[in-house]
Design a binder for these strands. Structure first.
Lengths: 113, 113
DNA sequence: TTTCGACTTCGATGAATATCGATGCGGAAA
DNA sequence: TTTCCGCATCGATATTCATCGAAGTCGAAA
């Protein structure tokens, strides 16, 4: 099952206990968020006007090697938080807001909490 | 700085890029959520009428050793997602809804997304 | 006091991961 | 074609982590 679909059929934490499959899927995405570098990358992409950032801009924001940034981008892409598109020599990354929204819903909306 | 306070002053991902300190604090909590067992534990506690669960009830829901469950409970407690209280021979765990709410707000409310 | 049960802590181990340098690849320019 | 640049992949390494058995703690009961 695709990851976003699995998120969509995972109930909020406080509604009913997650089963093992749901928990495994949701945990994959939260694990991707559980790294400060990846969180900052995601934030950089999310804040950008136009919604897309090229890798060189992200690399420039950290004192980390380019392969390391590439690794983190791959992790974020694998769990459905980012998409990428190559245009000419550059690769542009975009946010997938649906995935973030599903996560937020699983945690429970602030109003309900 | 205490973790919940750091969450409170961390902007939503899409508002402005997280700085290193904010990202480190937020990542700690997401990392705790990035394990399927811990997610299920959290869900079990969140769903429970009365809001509290004793360790033996949680242990009984998994095919894992009791020290392993205790380890996961400690992780969830250290990042401010659970609190515990001992009464007689039993230890009861409760959810900290404020922490979940802060996380949800950082991801961005579903309506805004 | 001794015993017992619920739970935590400790120590060890195998697996996962963050990081990097070196290398590969794809496209554009020369 | 050759060269160069942006980015991904590979291989290696040091660290982190999930898990468990053994041992410790704490409170209640005997």
């Amino acid at each position: 099952m695709e990851l976003l679909q699995l998120l969509e059929c995972s109930p909020p934490l406080a509604r009913e206990p997650l089963n093992a499959e749901q928990a495994a899927g949701v945990a994959r995405v939260f694990k991707a968020l559980g790294d400060p570098v990846r969180l900052r990358i995601l934030s950089i992409v999310a804040c950008r006007e136009g919604g897309e950032v090229c890798v060189c801009d992200i690399t420039g924001a950290f004192e980390l090697s380019q392969p390391t940034i590439s690794h983190h981008l791959k992790v974020l892409k694998e769990v459905g938080l980012l998409t990428s598109e190559r245009r000419a020599s550059w690769v542009y990354y975009r946010l997938v807001p649906e995935t973030l929204g599903e996560l937020s819903a699983i945690l429970g909306t602030p109003a309900v909490v």
